[in-house]
Design a protein around this nucleic acid. Structure first.
Length: 803
RNA sequence: GCCGCAGUGGCGGAACUGGCAGACGCGCAGGACUUAAAAUCCUGUUCGAGUUAAAUCGAGUACCGGUUCGAUUCCGGUCUGCGGCACCA
């Protein structure tokens, strides 16, 4: 009788062994495979079983690649700057550096419990000056290329986090981090010109092996649209108002025009009579938060008293102001075609403005229009020269026609805005800029980087729009790097995304103090082959990283312009009733107890077994018993049979190759939950076979190698028990033989009129006639009346159709 | 409002290109071992009818309809849940 499965002893033994004899070694000959996890921020609550799942998935995949002959680049690090870390420190009444260090220690311990093959020599921490030196260096490079610039403008402001936010960080009008309503604040900001990369960010999505959902989200976020700018002269003044439209085909139907209240000409268009109303409207609009403005479904507006001339037909159209027009998209002014746009229609109805239909619907002009006809299909009417033309065609051609007429031009617009890059918070990379009264904004010389974050007594956000760094006079006051005159340092810091936008490049050369990454190493180990993490970063981190990578490609740091070849989004593990795990909800499940009670191998397999890896799953730990029982069974099977001296017969050989086939194909499809059930099924089968005639050693060895990526400790233990001195991870992934899997005889179902009525056993290659004869014989008592049709799908099914 | 994803036993889920729906696991029920319990092993487990037990029959993959010899799978419509976008002209 063999000793029972003792997970504690086995896991301890091999953990120690692997520390001394790593299994993933770079011999310089093997091809590389870079498998990356989204690195965690060192939260105070530690890892929960949801984080674990992601890391288990990436480790299983890494070990699978390892067994396929790759050297695995599989690093881990800490996204330790930023709001979450700082907010946590404020709550705990400690310094973020201290709490961050403590949290990292705890999380690192937890991560080591996963027994993943992370290479800790590659570890990075975004708050390490040797790391953020390069975060600052990238900023300086961007500044020198004109991609980082200062601007005074109303930006998204989180009153709770007391800092400005990027557009991407505002979700449904709320702060992505804390959920507070976002307001506007007029601040001097550092901006990154991500819009300069809009086209490439959009086009290159085609190159990526990413979930369609994420690609679509990015494409929509970039929001490219084609159209035209059209110039409308203001009647009786020299002014011109340019509008942007995607529907220039409807130009004849423009019966009014609307400007955003923030438009620079807005106030000036008022006449004596309208002056008070216009000024009041502009003032009221300025008080509204973006949330209010978004949620006000009822349209408001004010007539300026001025008119514009429609350049296509000379019609005089009233100019209105309304806050449904956005100041920062297009030109901040639109032409309004109420007949063919829902919003314009609503506005025209409310303020009693004429509606002129210019595209026939079903060949007709609509009487008593009740809603806008927004399809760009139909024949043009009421459109002068354009009458009779097809609107869809005209939509494409109109921009050029307008351009030829000299009243506008063809143009393209994006929803993507430049990236608000400065934060009025302490815990971030200082922006390496000096403000000189004579020279203006001057970058800190590259050789002086890193510009270290100074110690402060009070690091809490001020809420004034100034960073806490502004209070440190000895730090703020400095000399201009260009002229040497007294100057002041920039006191804003960078957002959390700054470090995470490029950290994956640094892992492979994390000790290099001359370069961000050596070109030689970059060429050898980059880019990332597989990136695994949650979907919540679809338009934040993943978009920013692509932008950074393209920039670094442009300045020759790396030779690729997309960072992550393949992306996998694992589903979230939630608490009961699908509620997100969080400390405040008190439903966080820590992996620690489960590892202690069931072992790492069990938890690893259970994390996969809970459901398809890409879907969310409610955590219910009762099921872990099943996985533990499976490992116990598997252990017993191998230990009982290892010295049985059984020779593989045909049945065993068949089972052997089916096992390889099932596990490999399911793994290749990333169907990790069914890999686990596949192991259970085959182990049950092998256990039954063991009771009869025993199981051959080769089959046991194969099973152990296949199990290794999932349950590495037990696999290594059993590999040793099978008499091997090398590691199970030094083996190669088994290959199945289709011939060996073939069945001689198969059982198939026989249906009558599509309903299963019996079964017959046939030869694998048996001819149709013979099979049908057998089927009819087997179901003779159920066949009556006329047989209309007999169907045989080879090797699958017989269906007899009767009247 | 628009777009996307999903809906299968008591529960998590499986079913490859249309071919025996419910694999595997949890839970539950019964049994074996035990003085007893735990652990382990065996048997059963979609619902309903039927029977000592079976055989057998009927219904069944959110709902309604269609295509097909045959539909969880394909098509059309409806409902529900989740996610994304949301005055972007």
């Amino acid at each position: 009788m063999a000793t029972p499965y003792n997970h504690k002893a086995i896991e301890q033994k091999w953990r120690k062994h692997w520390e001394e004899h790593p299994v993933n070694v770079n011999d310089g000959k093997k091809p590389k495979y870079y498998c990356l996890d989204m690195f965690p921020y060192p939260s105070g609550s530690g890892l929960h079983v949801g984080h674990w799942r992601g890391y288990v998935i990436s480790d299983v995949w890494s070990r699978y690649k390892l067994l396929n002959g790759y050297y695995i680049v599989h690093p881990m690090g800490w996204d330790a700057f930023g709001l979450p870390a700082e907010n946590y420190a404020i709550k705990m009444g400690t310094h973020p550096r201290i709490s961050t260090e403590e949290n990292i220690k705890n999380i690192k311990r937890q991560i080591n419990e996963i027994a993943a093959i992370y290479d800790w020599d590659m570890e990075v921490n975004t708050t390490d000056p040797n790391f953020y030196k390069w975060t600052q260096w990238i900023f300086v490079k961007m500044f020198k290329k004109g991609l980082a610039y200062e601007k005074q403008m109303p930006i998204n402001w989180c009153p709770s986090c007391k800092t400005g936010l990027a557009n991407e960080e505002v979700v449904n009008g709320k702060c992505e981090r804390c959920g507070a309503d976002v307001t506007k604040k007029n601040l001097r900001q550092w901006m990154l010109k991500i819009t300069a990369y809009a086209d490439r960010l959009l086009e290159d999505l085609n190159k990526l092996d990413w979930p369609e959902k994420v690609k679509k989200m990015q494409a929509e976020w970039i929001g490219k649209s084609h159209g035209a700018e059209v110039d409308f002269k203001v009647d009786g003044s020299g002014e011109t108002i340019t509008v942007y439209t995607t529907r220039p085909d409807t130009l004849h139907g423009a019966t009014f025009m609307v400007l955003a209240p923030e438009h620079e000409l807005a106030a000036g268009l008022a006449t004596e009579e309208t002056k008070d109303a216009v000024e009041d409207y502009i003032y009221q609009a300025s008080l509204k938060s973006s949330v209010d403005r978004m949620q006000d479904k009822e349209k408001t507006g004010v007539f300026t008293g001025s008119y514009a001339i429609n350049p296509i037909n000379g019609a005089k159209v009233p100019i209105w102001l309304s806050d449904y027009v956005l100041a920062d998209y297009g030109t901040g002014a639109i032409m309004c075609v109420p007949a063919h746009d829902d919003r314009d229609f609503e506005f025209a109805k409310k303020f009693d403005i004429p509606i002129i239909q210019v595209i026939a619907k079903d060949g007709k002009e609509i009487e008593n229009m009740e809603e806008a006809y927004t399809d760009a299909s139909g024949i043009m009417i009421n459109s002068g020269d354009w009458n009779g033309r097809e609107s869809a065609e005209l939509k494409e051609e109109a921009p050029e026609i307008i351009e030829k007429m000299g009243v506008g031009k063809k143009t393209t617009n994006y929803k993507l805005r430049d990236w608000v890059f400065s934060r009025q918070r302490y815990w971030g990379e200082p922006i390496p800029i000096v403000h000189c009264p004579d020279c203006g904004a001057v970058p800190v010389p590259e050789e002086e980087l890193p510009l270290e974050l100074p110690e402060v007594e009070r690091y809490e956000p001020t809420g004034t729009g100034e960073s806490p760094l502004a209070d440190i006079e000895e730090w703020v006051n400095c000399k201009c790097p260009v002229c040497g005159k007294p100057a002041k340092r920039e006191t804003n810091t960078m957002p959390q995304w700054a470090g995470s936008s490029w950290y994956f490049l640094r892992y492979i050369d994390n000790k290099n103090d001359k370069e961000l990454v050596s070109r030689e190493k970059a060429d050898q180990y980059l880019p990332v082959d597989m990136y695994i993490g949650g979907v919540e970063h679809a338009v934040l981190h993943l978009l920013y990283s692509r932008f950074y990578t393209k920039f670094l490609y442009d300045i020759g740091v790396v030779d690729f312009d997309e960072p992550f070849h393949k992306l996998f989004n694992q589903g979230m593990i939630t608490g009961k009733n699908g509620i997100k795990m969080s400390k405040s909800k008190g439903n966080v499940v820590s992996p620690d107890d489960l590892v202690r009670d069931y072992g790492c191998d069990s938890l690893r397999m259970y994390e996969l077994f809970v459901g398809p890896p890409e879907l969310d799953a409610e955590w219910d730990e009762r099921g872990i018993d099943g996985v533990y029982r499976f490992l116990t069974k598997f252990y017993k099977l191998v230990m009982d049979q290892k010295d049985a001296q059984v020779k593989a017969d045909k049945e065993l050989l068949k089972e052997h190759h089916k096992l390889i086939y099932d596990i490999t194909t399911r793994l290749d499809n990333f169907s990790l939950n069914t890999v686990v059930s596949g192991f259970m099924e085959h182990t049950n089968k092998l256990t039954a076979m063991a009771k009869k005639n025993g199981v051959d050693k080769e089959t046991l060895e194969t099973a152990v190698v296949l199990l290794a990526p999932f349950a590495p400790h037990i696999a290594e233990e059993l590999w040793e028990a099978l008499g091997h001195e090398d590691s199970v991870f030094a083996q190669t992934w088994p290959v199945y033989d289709e011939e060996a899997m073939k069945e001689d005889e198969i059982e198939i179902a026989v249906q009558i009129n599509g309903k299963a009525r019996g079964k017959i056993t046939i030869g694998a290659e048996e001819a149709k006639d013979s099979v049908l004869a057998k089927a009819k014989e087997a179901l003779a008592d159920k066949i009556s009346g006329n047989i209309v049709k007999e169907i045989y799908v080879p090797g699958r099914i017989v269906n007899i159709v009767m009247k």
